[in-house]
Design a protein around this nucleic acid. Structure first.
Ligand code: FES
Ligand code: FES
Lengths: 148, 148
DNA sequence: CCATAGGGCACCGATTCGGTCCCATTTCGT
DNA sequence: ACGAAATGGGACCGAATCGGTGCCCTATGG
């Protein structure tokens, strides 16, 4: 399926939330989970992973939490997806070893799918966390009346 | 995972094979399976699906087979993917009903992910079957020396 | 009338996904 | 010094999806 995992979806939401706050302050998993309307164990798992992958910096101990490892403009959607699900590749052979490949003489997908793959990659690479956080604020403004 | 199914991968190969032949002649599943180096049941299953989805026209009975339903230039990679795995949507809420959504107040992914989704969609929509078949021939030419 | 070829679908093992829980470790506050 | 608060790292399990095969039916050309 050409669909990202729910956990990746959650990761995007969480990253956006963190990016929308003061860059220097850490935010606890509990707090973030609440704001993202996610169960705490889930949010915790994802935040741990994002930390291990270097997208977040964690502060342990009481009053600990997470903050962005880089500026919001340096982190892209592609980064987050890669952190959660590994390298972005539409098919087995579009990036990995061509061992299982060779479905056809001079495999047609090799060239074309690689191009498609690159296009997708570029599209994901083009959106930064800063843009997402910005879009959120705009949306919140736009919705402030209808919701309230 | 942002990855298409193996069956979809196979479908792309099969479609490319069909597109590379005379548009009026039908080709049997057996023949295509052989050329794609796929087990016959698999190829059959995929071809049936592609036929049901309207991308291929089937000729039943002895000497039957498949041919393209439209010109190779009218069929895109996105069409094939949609035929195999349904609508192209990166997340649950980026196209379906927003029922399960609302992960956050004025959900941030709603706006941004939809944009990403569109970019991916466009990228897939941009590649036609004719291009794939063409690329295959070019690749075959380019590889004729190094392989032999 | 029979061999050939597609149509439809059920089925099964293997993998992945979604989510929870537990326990160890670190650190702040008292 | 001690305990509460928080992250770190996995193990774990039910559910869904994937990859692939097989069976039986229908259509059709010779
Ligand atoms: S052999 Fe599989 S993509 Fe080239
Ligand atoms: S609520 Fe999920 S994408 Fe908007």
């Amino acid at each position: 399926m050409i669909r990202l995992t729910k956990q990746t979806d959650y990761a995007l939401v969480l990253m956006t939330l963190i990016a929308a706050s003061e860059p220097s302050e850490v935010q606890s998993a509990t707090e973030l989970a609440e704001r993202a309307r996610l169960p705490l164990p889930m949010a915790g798992k994802i935040l741990k992973l994002l930390g291990r992958e270097g997208l977040l910096v964690s502060q342990r101990g009481a009053a600990g939490g997470y903050r962005l490892a880089q500026g919001a403009s340096e982190t892209t959607v592609a980064d987050i997806i890669r952190a959660m699900e590994g390298p972005i590749a539409l098919t087995d052979c579009s990036s990995d070893s061509g061992a299982v490949c060779s479905l056809e003489e001079s495999c047609p997908t090799c060239s074309t799918l690689r191009r498609v793959n690159r296009a997708v990659n570029d599209a994901l690479e083009a959106i930064t966390l800063a843009e997402m956080a910005g879009a959120k604020h705009e949306a919140r403004e736009a919705l402030s009346e209808p919701i309230a």
